[in-house]
Amino acid sequence: MMDGMRKIERDTAASDIKIQARSVQVFYGDTHAIKDVSVDILDKTVTAFIGPSGCGKSTFLRCLNRMNDTIDIARVQGDIHIDGDDIYDPSIDPVQLRAKVGMVFQKPNPFPKSIYDNIAYGPRIHGLARTKAELDEIVERSLRRGAIWDEVKDRLHEPGTGLSGGQQQRLCIARAVATEPEVLLMDEPCSALDPIATAQVEDLIDELRRNYSVVIVTHSMQQAARVSQKTAFFHLGNLVEYRETGQIFTNPEDARTESYITGRIG
């Protein structure tokens, strides 16, 4: 299992804090889903959120680009700053925030449009390209970053829904990076994929670390160990432990973390 630990050896100390969360509470109606979570997420780093089902890791992830706003009964308290700006400040429009904080979802969800239009949609609505040539360039660059350019370059105008599951997910990643975000949130991006597609997406995540702060929610501890530099363990809405990935898997401080990674809870 620890064969996958290769990537954590890399240097992480030089990174700056990208996202600063303080005393974040989330309520779904009467349910207290996130309890007083404070965390600093670094730039140019892959941060993994792990924990048993229902522990709140996806909920917390969705606070970071205010996707919880779309759920009527969800309430978020506390402070979350990205680059020092309070993202829950009334002056911040969620649209503006989501252009800066991209998201990839659990199930690949390409639009039922062509591959080209899937990528071009974000740049178009934000007005990032002035000419067709610029847009073409953005599409190509994004598909290359999504490590799917070679597979789709000859069929850019075929529907994105016709691709295989792994290709669809890489298309969604390419779509997310097309708007040049600074943070990329990934909610269990490999849970619907087979091992080969998973390996491709994991390589891609490691590649994306050069330009983005990547936050990934995963059920697979092996995946967290393979792709992340920092790992946060959530349990029952609490952030139990948040340290460098190597340390959390080899030398957990909290008894609950140890129970989880050794398979006794979860």
């Binding site: 996707m67 779309t70 989501r98 998201m103 974000g122 997310a176 708007t179």
Partner: peptide
Amino acid sequence: VPPSIREAALGVGAS
């Protein structure tokens, strides 16, 4: 219309 399509569009910053 599946919620995943709405999420996808919201996720890239559509209003």
